[in-house]
Design a protein around this nucleic acid. Structure first.
Lengths: 192, 192
DNA sequence: AGAACTACTTAAGATATCTTAAGAAAAATG
DNA sequence: CATTTTTCTTAAGATATCTTAAGTAGTTCT
């Protein structure tokens, strides 16, 4: 409990200045939840009720395409927020799902509660402005890599940048994230 | 001059509440600039000095890949902010350029001035939190479309969603944005 | 209006990547 | 530890997309 509050405090103070009352307030607007492996935090087609702060664990965000294949658009790990932002902010049905790959522990907050906090604690609005900026930068970087490189290079870029992932995520999910078939990724790995 | 201030006011009040003093303050931290067709607002390799609010005109954001081909990652039109966010926020060399496709008129603001404003006017921080959220949502949508569709579908999606663009942007730039060769886009268009 | 760019099209051959199908290996489960 | 399920590999044929090269049309400049 205190440990969790510490993790949240440590994370938030990377982005703005908070006093103890702020942290307390934020903490109490969140709920604590544990998801087992394969549990869904969000299901495609439903309205995303929460923004999830991952305390521990690993999730993937994915959708089924028209051929019934899974398309992974993102992973979420410790100290990341994950949600379907469009669904969460506009309270519309989500175009993708979020599912735990490992047992995952989160703090989750509703749009309503988050907006109350923004008003009470301007530093939180600053923190989220910066967090969102960083998420945008990360996605722009992904976009750039996908634009300019072929499958093999995408794979090597990912190996280099996120070596830890390969221990925790099955290869076919890496393939999906890289927008390659698992068979072709296997092929790529063979020809090293 | 008053017209410009009105455009800025109208835009910002879509995201938060501002009084006249706020608008005045924001306006005076920006500088007004006109770029001719083909002028660069930002050059690959240099630090991005400004966040640009496009009052009028059209720009593209692109980089040269290793084969010397242009890769367009984004367009910017009236009432959009455009910058290389990573370069602007971290004052590091930009990985891409921004160039005017038409004569383009902007309000441009430095990181320093923007940060002064965030402190003086919390509503601006709120507005930029929301603006950044919307940019992230837009890029996630692009990511989703690219993940799940082939070239032909990407083209049709774009025709449907942004028909105005096709009047203003040469076809080879559309091809670049869609990550298709101009020759293949021509092929696609033939087979309708 | 003629010259010089710039943008678009066409087509043939090359290549990256996918599809399908099957089997092997590894991990989870009773 | 035997069985079931999940994950990974292999290979052959199919397909989307690119490359190259050349020609045509459209724009801009003098």
């Amino acid at each position: 409990m205190i440990q969790i509050k510490n993790q949240l405090r440590e994370y938030l103070t990377r982005y703005a200045t908070f006093n103890e009352t702020d942290i307390e307030l934020i903490f109490h607007q969140c709920s604590y939840e544990k998801y087992q492996k394969k549990d869904f935090l969000l299901k495609q087609g439903t309205v995303c009720q929460y923004n999830f702060f991952i305390l521990k664990g690993l999730v993937r965000q994915f959708r089924f395409d028209d051929n019934g294949h899974e398309n992974i658009s993102a992973f979420g790990i410790e100290n990341w927020w994950i949600t379907n932002l469009n669904s969460f902010l506009n309270q519309t049905p989500s175009t993708n799902s979020i599912q735990a790959i490992e047992e995952t522990i989160v703090l989750q907050i509703t749009k309503e509660n988050l907006e109350v906090l923004y008003v009470k604690i301007p530093a939180l609005e600053r923190a989220f402005r910066k967090i969102t900026e960083n998420m945008l930068i990360a996605l722009q970087r992904k976009d750039e890599i996908f634009m300019k490189t072929n499958s093999k290079e995408r794979y090597y870029t990912m190996v280099k940048q996120l070596p830890d992932f390969f221990q925790r995520v099955p290869q076919y999910m890496i393939a999906s994230y890289l927008d390659i078939t698992p068979e072709y990724l296997s092929e790529i790995r063979k020809n090293i």
